[in-house]
Amino acid sequence: MSADPALRFEHVTIAFPGAEGPLKVVNDVSFAVGSGQCLVIVGESGSGKSMACQALLGIVPAPGAVSGQGIFWEGRDLLKSSARDWMKVRGAEIAMVFQDPAAALNPLMPVGRQIVDVVRAHRSVTRAEAERRAIEVLNQVGFPEPERRMRAYPIELSGGLRQRVAIALALACGPKLIVADEATTNLDVSIQAQIIGLLRSLKEELGISIVFVTHDLGLAPEIGDEVLVMYAGHAVERGPVREVLDRPSHPYTIGLLNSAPTLESSRAHPLKPIPGQVPALDEIGAGAPFRSRCPVVVSGRCDSAKPDWTACGGGHFVACHRFAQDGIGGVQ
């Protein structure tokens, strides 16, 4: 992480009203992204990863409430921004690429026009200038023959090309941060590799920062500098990608890695699934979020107190009572 991160998400909580008090879908989560860096947020359904992304764009749906110390973007606190200020940031400085490009694009409008509209919403330029910009960004994302094919409707394009258009749309106003929420999830592996290659070149060649959200830990080393593992609304482990993958230190991260088949796995070495399922948010209470499925619970600690961050070395941190007490030997 660079000394002066472009984005700091500090102790942010996102709560929705529930029958018995607020349900915290994101619970006191912090992270930072340096400029030109990529943070990979890994988590399964209900981990709060998508909600955290939505907070970065100020689009958490009502009645969700975002609170905390702040979401600092280039020195400004976005949490204190007015709706008007948000309009200037969203799309122009911070842009989002959604999971499903078929749903993110307007089906009734040629793709080129959608980019032109975004450019003209943020910049006072003529239609012809906006069209030149559309062609430029379509070129950047490797969209073939943009002058001609920008007149195509989304339905006339393949899934991979649609995702390229969605990324071009995000690039249109020259953002400094792109938030990609499961942006490669439904794509075939070869297309997925192309899209990740594209995002990586945006980072390396244009210096754009990226928050890349995925449920697939295998993607982290492909694009990420740092990784944040989330479980049931909590951040449980964070650090440089290779550190976390080589020395996973939270029982959930370890469980996730043992659950995922790799190219070397076979039935001779069975997967070790994490038993049980993700608890309902109102069942977590004051203790460690993973305790109901954890093989190494510290009795008397895990059910009563949230674990603090413990340093594992090399900028790698884990929030686990067992690790704090017994070190890496205790969690493995």
Partner: peptide, 30 residues
């Protein structure tokens, strides 16, 4: 090609096929 395109956390150091410049079809960056 299909095998090389798989993201795999157990694999070290080898880039995926699609991540090599040749496999990254048509992207032209300024």
């Amino acid at each position: 090609g299909l095998l090389a395109a798989i993201p795999d956390h157990s694999r070290r150091g080898e880039p995926r096929l699609g991540l090599r410049p040749a496999g990254h079809e048509g992207a032209r960056l300024a």
